[in-house]
Amino acid sequence: MLRLMLRDDQWERLAPLVRGKAGDRGRSGIDNRLFIEAVLWIARTGSPWRDLPSEFGNWNSIYVRFARWSNKDVWHAIFAVLREDADVEEVSIDSTVIRAHQHAAGAAKKKGEQALGRSRGGFGTKIHACVEGLGQLARFVLTGGQVHDSTQAETLLKEIEPQAVLADKAYDTNALLDCIAGKNAKAVIPPKANRKEQREFDQHQYRNRNLVERFFAHIKQFRRIATRYDKLASRFASFVALAASALWLK
């Protein structure tokens, strides 16, 4: 018997956000709930598409539909709606390196961005995340594993107006501090040891930064996130958006 993820109340919240429902233009989707469960099964187990249980339907048809939704940013649109309840008064930013499986390499550049690179952690992708005050994902960016954390911070904060931004000392750059000050927000970032002029930071509030570390631990329970198997960044980003959406539904 299949182990499914969505409760009835969760599906009721998700159903209006998917494509192919009654009233949408074009052909209606065949059993949207079972399709979402199939993609969640892949995300949770990390299995190859060909190993999808037959109870979900033809694996290739489900993959093609997943890819089509990915190309049309449907997964990101679902995530965008669910994150509208985010409490961004205090946000934490950080990144985590996702090791890439050998099958993730080799996509033709013309097919799209890959967001892969080598760092001390090996060959992989970085998820740069902004987590809201209750520990849920508010925004994320994918880059190659070699990209420095601080380079993506302003992008993560671009559409957010927090009162405080928490981050580790890797984010202690003048550009980011100016960005946070420009938002009239408080920078809760420890200074680097090599700063000529050391500055104060709220060590008590800094303890709340553990929310972003706990978020990474939660989302990596989806094995398709813990290891990257997808050749294209857009496909992997779709799984991140789906997994984050599932966490928002809990």
Rank of each mutant, 00 (worst) to 15 (best):
residue 2 L to K: 06
residue 5 M to T: 09
residue 5 M to G: 06
residue 7 R to M: 10
residue 12 E to F: 09
residue 13 R to M: 13
residue 18 V to A: 05
residue 24 D to I: 09
residue 27 R to L: 07
residue 29 G to S: 09
residue 29 G to H: 06
residue 29 G to D: 08
residue 36 I to H: 01
residue 41 W to S: 03
residue 45 T to E: 11
residue 45 T to A: 01
residue 49 W to Q: 00
residue 50 R to G: 00
residue 51 D to C: 02
residue 53 P to V: 04
residue 56 F to A: 04
residue 60 N to Q: 11
residue 62 I to L: 09
residue 65 R to E: 11
residue 68 R to G: 05
residue 71 N to R: 13
residue 74 V to R: 13
residue 79 F to W: 13
residue 84 E to W: 08
residue 89 E to N: 06
residue 91 V to E: 03
residue 93 I to K: 00
residue 95 S to P: 01
residue 96 T to N: 02
residue 96 T to Y: 01
residue 100 A to T: 02
residue 102 Q to W: 07
residue 104 A to E: 07
residue 107 A to T: 00
residue 110 K to T: 08
residue 111 K to W: 15
residue 112 G to T: 02
residue 115 A to K: 14
residue 117 G to I: 15
residue 117 G to S: 13
residue 117 G to N: 13
residue 119 S to V: 06
residue 119 S to F: 08
residue 120 R to C: 09
residue 121 G to P: 01
residue 121 G to V: 03
residue 121 G to W: 11
residue 123 F to R: 11
residue 126 K to I: 06
residue 130 C to R: 12
residue 131 V to Y: 12
residue 133 G to Y: 05
residue 140 F to A: 15
residue 144 G to V: 12
residue 145 G to I: 12
residue 146 Q to E: 15
residue 151 T to Y: 02
residue 152 Q to D: 07
residue 152 Q to F: 12
residue 152 Q to S: 10
residue 154 E to N: 05
residue 154 E to I: 13
residue 156 L to Y: 04
residue 157 L to G: 01
residue 158 K to W: 10
residue 160 I to C: 08
residue 161 E to A: 15
residue 162 P to H: 13
residue 166 L to M: 15
residue 167 A to Y: 14
residue 168 D to E: 15
residue 169 K to S: 15
residue 177 L to Y: 10
residue 188 V to D: 03
residue 189 I to G: 07
residue 190 P to W: 07
residue 190 P to D: 09
residue 198 Q to T: 08
residue 201 F to H: 13
residue 203 Q to N: 06
residue 204 H to I: 08
residue 207 R to P: 04
residue 208 N to A: 11
residue 209 R to D: 11
residue 211 L to N: 07
residue 217 A to R: 06
residue 220 K to I: 09
residue 220 K to C: 07
residue 221 Q to I: 03
residue 223 R to T: 00
residue 225 I to S: 01
residue 233 A to G: 04
residue 234 S to R: 10
residue 235 R to C: 08
residue 238 S to I: 10
residue 239 F to P: 09
residue 241 A to H: 14
residue 244 A to T: 10
residue 244 A to R: 05
residue 245 S to R: 03
residue 246 A to E: 07
